[in-house]
Amino acid sequence: MRHPGINLGEHHGEAHDQAETLVFGFWVFLMSDLIIFGLMFAIYVTMANPVGMAGGPGPKDVFDLTSVFIQTMILLTSSLTFGIASLAMRHEQGRGRIALWLGVTLALGLGFLGFEARDFANMIGMGAGPSRSGFLSAFWGLVPLHGLHVSAGCIWIVVMLIQMRTFGMIPIVKTRLLRLGLFWHFLDLIWVGIFTIVFLAGISA
């Protein structure tokens, strides 16, 4: 049974074979993580109502759609740049090129986190912290959880940049980059859910 998704290609030899199990295992992990996000979404949906808001601020009062739109664009672009890095690895276009596009992805990831942190600070400033209501608890449980994942992804990119430099493009580095790629695109997918269910639905309701 071949694992689903992009593998490196037969010409990568050992790394291609190892990826069979490693990438499949990572897919399974992501499925489990997806359940966590799915449940957080479900909780958020049950709490996005007047009872859950408990007289506190609602979506329209606290969400800055312009900022969220910018974050969305940054994150989607970062998925594109990671994709370019993956293709560079698949076609063995050299370590420098891969590192360059990973660097761009990292910068975009950090940019996303910067905008997100600014929004969070603003919300705290206007008294919309998690302590205010069940609705805001659900928001603060879901969106920063995604942010935490992105932060972990950024650290992972840094570690991979160091490992590419120290070890070169050895099989284990390649399979790790494959898994990191899955992780990064997965976070994009979650963000699309957050953008739709939390922000767009919240503003339009």
Partner: peptide, 23 residues
Amino acid sequence: MLAADRYLDFHFFTNDLGGNMMN
């Protein structure tokens, strides 16, 4: 979530402020 309620003053499951123990 229960930990967030207990440690960080979240309101997922509290009686007050829109928490919902049924979740």
